[in-house]
Amino acid sequence: MQVPAFPPDEALRVQTLRELLILDTPPEARFDNLTRAAAAFFRVQIAVVSLIDVNRQWFKSACGLDAKETPRDISFCGHTILQDDVFVIEDALLDERFFDNPLVIGEPQIRFYAGAPLKASNGMNLGTLCLIDKNPRALLDFEIEMLSDMAKLVVLELERPMARPEAVVS
């Protein structure tokens, strides 16, 4: 198993992620709606909003997966954040980086993976919107574009200011 490298701007990337105050927060419909839509549109078993912290990938939303996080060193998403394009693995068993990965040889038995980086407004890749299936497959060009567009919607939600209570006027 090949462990992903860290981005050269890792400290700023982690700082940006933590400033969002999103890690370890409860589930939210605004993210769950997007992962359900992604799973349905792409006809995959699993769709996840994954945020890459220092030593883990934490799932803000996961459709079709019960896990809340996995170690970063076995994550597919850790590879995805190293680039700006959608990262696709058509068959993880045939990929030298992943064929012996615990997530491939054990549950959830990943064969197909596609992840679009979640690029913050400052350019940092904070995580991914990813698709996972137990069956190998490919994506068409329009599907890659759609996954990228859906990842941009996730970023809009991540960076959207939270509603603040109105000041009480007496």
Rank of each mutant, 00 (worst) to 15 (best):
F76I: 04
C63Y: 14
V44N: 07
D95K: 00
V104R: 01
D85K: 10
R72A: 05
P102F: 02
I105L: 07
P102N: 05
E107R: 13
K68E: 12
A62D: 12
N101Y: 05
L103Y: 04
S75M: 07
I22Q: 00
V14K: 08
W58D: 06
R18K: 15
I52A: 08
V48T: 08
V104K: 06
W58N: 11
E19H: 12
G106V: 13
D73M: 07
D32V: 11
R13K: 09
L12D: 15
L94A: 15
Q45A: 15
Q15T: 12
D84K: 04
T80N: 00
L12F: 03
P26G: 01
W58C: 10
L93P: 02
N101W: 04
D84S: 14
P26A: 06
I81S: 10
R97A: 06
R30W: 05
E19I: 01
L21W: 07
R56H: 11
I22K: 00
R36C: 07
L82E: 14
L82Q: 12
N55T: 15
F41R: 13
A38T: 06
D32N: 14
R30D: 09
S61R: 03
I22A: 07
P8W: 02
S75N: 05
D24E: 13
E28P: 12
P71R: 09
L82N: 12
P26T: 05
V86P: 04
S61Q: 03
I89Y: 02
A29F: 01
L51Q: 05
A62Q: 10
A40N: 11
D24G: 04
R56A: 02
D100F: 11
L94Y: 03
V14C: 04
R56W: 04
A40G: 13
S75R: 06
F99T: 02
I52S: 06
L93A: 12
K68P: 00
E10A: 00
V49S: 01
I105K: 02
Q45T: 14
R13V: 04
P26I: 02
A29D: 08
L17C: 05
L82A: 14
F76C: 04
P26D: 02
R18P: 04
W58V: 15
V88R: 03
E10T: 00
D53Q: 01
A39G: 06
L103S: 03
R30P: 04
A62Y: 10
I89H: 04
S50K: 08
R30S: 11
P71M: 10
S50I: 13
